[in-house]
Amino acid sequence: MKKILFVIALAVTTTATFGQGRFLTKNGKIYFDCTTPSSPEKIDGTNDKATSVIDASTGAIEFALLMKAFVFEKSLMQEHFNENYVESDKFPKATFKGNITNMSSINLSKDGTYPATVKGQMTLHGETKEVTAPGTITVKGGAITAAKSEFKLLLSDFKVEIPSVVADKVAKEAKISVDLTFQPMAAK
């Protein structure tokens, strides 16, 4: 009898730990900047609504965002971004599916900010490419609380075309900043 109880208790604790291993955000921030020295103004946009899940037990990370949720200071720039560059009506989402390649060096039982490398498949404008990005993972109280990354995306990799008239005014590489604050995911 005691043995059965022990097995049940063990099973419960294992599932509980497993359930705690996933972290979620629905309010991730993605910022991009395509300004060049000859741009007449800053070309940048912010998206406050990226969704991301990290599984700490495997290091798997996924995120998704809606292209139309990028907000610009100038409305004409927002219109051009959606209609001429990323074609948001045809391709409403961008997604990333990958892994933290050095998950084993991130110690979940010790608070701190760890350098991390993320590698995976990025889908944008209907094109999928492998992307590797450096970043950091913040651990607090046994949980992943934040992730940050900065990297560059070559627009031509995703068939985002820059009209030749503005070729020197829009950067060919977008600088991307990712800032995610995670919550433990409620076990279902």
Binding site: D48, K49, T51, L65, L66, K68, A69, V71, P92, K93
Partner: peptide
């Protein structure tokens, strides 16, 4: 607001 689509939630901006 302006509707932008759905991820886990429907997202509205502005």
């Amino acid at each position: 607001g302006i509707c932008t689509g759905i991820l886990m939630d429907v997202v509205m901006v502005d």
